[in-house]
């Protein structure tokens, strides 16, 4: 009998340790939790953060300028807490923008890059590292330890949120899929990959506070834009255009519900 009690205690301890890293995925008795903890301690995503930091302050592009004058909503060059309050409405572009859209706006306006070129190279591959992914990782990481605090005070912010909610629940395309098909119940999987239930506040918060994330299968750091694009591809829907209104609307919907959760990026995922 004492042996059995000890076993239960040890089991509980493992759950506790795993819970500290990725609570959403650490279902009871999750043996992968140990591995996830080890990955999180030495997260290769940190290398992207470092690279992003260098790129941010470097004079680059046709206009040979750094990004220090870029306003992410907290004033030019103010990065602390900026990601926690995105997507938000920006007066100069008269649009709701997520971090990546805003970054591209700045790279075009301040550094003179062409928007089309950036869209083509924004997602890196094994042969070419992406500057945008590194910059997003760096800027987002400046909100680490802060609480998600996405505003809905402007009418356009509210519209984006409502549009995102509509899209999230809408089923469409040749397979009649929507976000809700995979992310509406606990315990859904694609092959062995657990899918978070995004209608559960806790699970959703764990998702939005851990992107951008390093993906082991990609050997790369990826952003929410990438995640949504792949979701659309997996649903066999037309390609989700980079920085499209749809992607920003879904991000608005998800991030707003994440309000109050503490950001810890980059995450580590499969």
């Amino acid at each position: 009998m004492p042996r059995k009690v000890g076993g239960i205690a040890a089991f509980a301890l493992v759950c506790l340790v795993a819970g500290g890293v990725t609570p959403a995925l650490a279902q009871s008795g999750d043996p992968l939790g140990v591995g996830r903890k080890m990955l999180a301690e030495d997260n290769p995503g940190e290398l992207w953060v470092e690279r992003g930091k260098t790129l941010f302050y470097q004079k680059r592009g046709p206009k040979n300028a750094s990004l220090e004058r870029c306003d992410f909503g907290m004033g030019p060059g103010q990065l602390a807490g900026a990601y926690a309050a995105l997507p938000r409405y920006f007066q100069d572009t008269d649009a709701v923008q997520d971090l990546e859209s805003r970054l591209v706006t700045c790279m075009v306006a301040l550094q003179g890059y062409k928007r089309g070129d950036l869209a083509k190279t924004a997602m890196g591959n094994l042969d070419r590292m992406s500057d945008v992914e590194a910059l997003v990782a760096f800027i987002a990481s400046r909100s680490n330890g802060m609480k998600m605090n996405v505003p809905l005070s402007h009418q356009k912010e509210y519209d984006a949120y409502k549009a995102g909610e509509y899209i999230f629940y809408r089923r469409n395309g040749p397979t009649d899929f929507g976000c809700i098909t995979c992310h509406g119940e606990n315990g859904k999987r694609i092959r062995l990959q657990d899918l978070p239930n995004m209608t559960d506040r806790k699970q959703l918060q764990d998702v939005v506070t851990s992107w951008p994330a390093y993906l082991g299968t990609q050997s790369n750091l990826r952003t929410m834009q990438w995640r949504l694009k792949i979701c659309y591809w997996q649903m066999r829907l037309p390609d989700l255009a980079y920085l499209s209104d749809i992607s920003v609307a879904i991000t608005s919907y998800l991030n707003y519900q994440g309000n109050g959760a503490v950001i810890g990026v980059p995450g580590v995922k499969r």
Binding site: E41, D42, P44, E46, L47, R51, L126, D127
Partner: peptide, 16 residues
Amino acid sequence: VRILMLHPMETGQRKD
């Protein structure tokens, strides 16, 4: 001591 290095580590087997 834990060290993370950023390197492509191409094997010479992969094709572009």
